[in-house]
């Protein structure tokens, strides 16, 4: 935001066809952290898209003879089990990759949904103001007053959890934050002169919300969203651990950790 309002002399010539956001991205790209992060992200996307074709059913195949193999860098480990095997002799690397893929998928899908839902409600609420705003904000208050975990164990613990219900729970508990942020940014944006200018040339409310306000509030909210993907992945793991995540035999981080726990503590 600060970039957009900085004085013009910073940029000698008008930059052709290049937005402020593009320039921030290009600047960020120069940092090594950004490169590493992008590479990891790309790898995750590839795993999500092509993982199922490469990883075969052996990930869930039980082979008691091979149980509790240590990773190959420890004594007793053997190929092809690079990270060893679990209590049922299943390959841990493969299981982790599948778990990672599922977690990533759930994280991304739920964040995209809560992002869209939350922003739409938040922008509408903030732009409209008045009673619409009061009612919508009280609804977000109610939603925010139910802790995620309570909602999750209530819904998931009672039904048979699958990726769809898990995403539904995450979206249900996650959208109010986006609505809050979108609303507060909209309230500030609504005061700005470009919104007034748009109304004066006759732009409709919908047009102002979609074409003018939405683009300017996305950057700060997108930042929240990126961090939230990680949070949702962690929730997925927690659900799995408690036993309200994706059900066995499909591996998840949570079930892998839970599976190892008993043996670890008895060791």
């Amino acid at each position: 935001m600060a970039i957009a309002s900085s004085p013009p002399q910073t940029f000698a010539a008008p930059a052709r066809g290049q937005s402020v956001n593009a320039r921030i991205l290009r600047l960020a790209w120069r940092s090594p952290e950004m490169k590493v992060a992008s590479a990891l992200f790309l790898a995750l996307c590839l795993l999500t898209l092509f993982g199922p074709f490469v990883i075969d059913a052996s990930a869930t195949k039980i082979s008691v003879a091979d149980k509790f193999l240590p990773p190959i860098f420890m004594e007793g480990g053997k190929l092809p089990h690079i990270l060893g095997t679990d209590q049922l002799g299943r390959d841990l690397l493969l299981r982790s990759l599948i778990g990672l893929r599922n977690a990533f998928l759930i994280g991304v899908v739920s964040v995209v949904l809560m992002f869209v839902l939350g922003c739409a409600i938040g922008i509408y609420s903030g732009y409209r103001g008045g009673w619409t705003d009061v009612v919508l904000m009280r609804i977000t208050d109610i939603q925010m007053s139910i802790p995620v975990i309570i909602l999750a164990i209530t819904i998931l613990g009672m039904s048979r959890p699958n990726p769809v219900t898990i995403i539904a729970v995450l979206v249900l508990s996650g959208w109010p934050i986006y609505a809050r942020v979108a609303r507060s940014v909209t309230l500030a944006e609504r005061q700005k002169e470009y919104v007034r200018a748009a109304r004066i040339i006759g732009a409709s409310d919908l047009r102002i919300m979609v074409r003018h306000i939405a683009p300017s509030i996305l950057p700060p909210i997108a930042f929240v969203a990126v961090l939230d993907v990680a949070r949702m992945m962690i929730f997925e793991a927690i659900f799995g651990f408690i036993g309200i995540g994706i059900q066995p035999p499909t591996p998840t981080f949570g079930t892998i950790i839970a599976g190892g726990t008993q043996y670890l503590l008895n060791a």
């Binding site: 957009a4 937005s19 956001n21 470009y194 007034r196 200018a197 004066i200 006759g202 003018h212 300017s216």
Partner: peptide, 23 residues
């Protein structure tokens, strides 16, 4: 009616930085 009136009736604002969208 308001929309067609707006064609004949325009307002110029003060802040040259905030009154046009940057993107």
């Amino acid at each position: 009616a308001l929309l067609s009136m707006r064609r004949r009736f325009q307002l110029l604002l003060q802040d040259p930085y905030n009154s046009i969208p940057s993107h």
